[in-house]
Design a protein around this nucleic acid. Sequence first.
DNA 1: CCGGCCGTAGTGGTCGGACCACATCTGTGA
DNA 2: TCACAGATGTGGTCCGACCACTACGGCCGG
Lengths: 240, 240
Amino acid sequence: MDQSEQSAPPAPAQKGTVTQRAIEEIKAMIREGLLEPGQRLPTERDLATQLGISRSSMREAIRALTVLGVLEARHGSGIYVTQLEAGDLLETFGVVADLSRGPRLVELLEVRRVLESTATGLAAARITQDQLADVEKHLAAMNATDDPEEILSHDLAFHRTIAFAAGNDTMAAILEGLSSRTFRARVWRGYQEEGAFERTRREHSRIHRALVARDPEAARAAAAAHVGEVEDWLRGQLEG
Amino acid sequence: MDQSEQSAPPAPAQKGTVTQRAIEEIKAMIREGLLEPGQRLPTERDLATQLGISRSSMREAIRALTVLGVLEARHGSGIYVTQLEAGDLLETFGVVADLSRGPRLVELLEVRRVLESTATGLAAARITQDQLADVEKHLAAMNATDDPEEILSHDLAFHRTIAFAAGNDTMAAILEGLSSRTFRARVWRGYQEEGAFERTRREHSRIHRALVARDPEAARAAAAAHVGEVEDWLRGQLEG
DNA sequence: CCGGCCGTAGTGGTCGGACCACATCTGTGA
DNA sequence: TCACAGATGTGGTCCGACCACTACGGCCGG
């Protein structure tokens, strides 16, 4: 709305802070293909000189892009562009889940329910024998122990494998964030104390059977019900 | 050489870089409720002293949390915790969409289709008269002009209003990121050149009719088809 | 000739201090 | 009483030095 074209091409375009400008500058370089995934960037000192800013400011810009999963700094070696894969970029999604509280937790679970059911449905049609074997491995391990930590660990792997088998890495990465350890640990702490172990096991078995039967609709329903259980419980917690 | 004064009983926990430690430290403070949304933090200088690091490192940590939407720095005033609302935290989602290319664009559209259809279905049941009026306003404005920029603008507002009416702010925020200006501009540039205007208008009308009729299933289907059209086109582009 | 050791140059990581730009409060003067 | 100007404190930027680590290459012993 304010983009009135100016004459000077090398004009600094005094928008916002210097660091912010540097961030946009680097993002633009990547977007336009000047920086390929995996490629090494010039040194911090050189980059700072190129953009005419101090190394401190450039470092802040680099740090910002690092936490976003766009860049990766290797001490003593250099700065590199990540592979820009779904996992790299969506890692920050976990932060959101970790810092969310109250009603937002329910909203996140609602999003997870929608995506998880879709992914599980897709997986029923696409999962390979090897992946199915993995799923069964985690299912068995989950049922073979009573250690909550271990159960949670295999539970996560169970769903992760299924999400990955759906073939949409982006969706799988988002689900990964929505199921991050600390997030689920917080919710499940109370949920499992109410003796939900058995119900969880039944639900997992139902999902597994649907995958074996290659029944997408059943898989979708089972996954939705599975997440929905936790969702309803949490909703009740917030009200009561 | 001057930092060896105290033996540090609270355990320095030498994990990763100093800055990384500071980031986790602040996140923990927020997670544990020591820092409330909207609250003002100590000054950069004080924070640096508290954690026993330099101001430079602390600034990098703050910058990192700023781009994640957790903190907000106001020049001359101080540093504040954001409201930690969905919009604040999920703003970075737009960055992902902007930097994605090729097959990942299709994956993102697939995620959007799933969420958009869900949100539109929910909206059919929950939208208020005022919100419906807004939707109609954008629909009319969209059909009254031929300026692609303006069309895109109202198109975004059309879907945003609907997503918001669904009642799940988190879902709406994610959709916002998946529909960010630059992302859609890139895809639609080619799509609309193929004379897809008319089809888009028909699809929007269909969504609108379903909302008016309070028919969730029809709304869901219409939204899925709408996004699916673009999805298919893009998939074809990548193959052909 | 080969291979491992070690020094060195180059990189990111950290530090401390200085100064600038901006927001806010305060006290003065009309 | 109110408006303005200064003082104060904050984040924003810059500089220069040093530390920690990696990678490379030449040296030395086998």
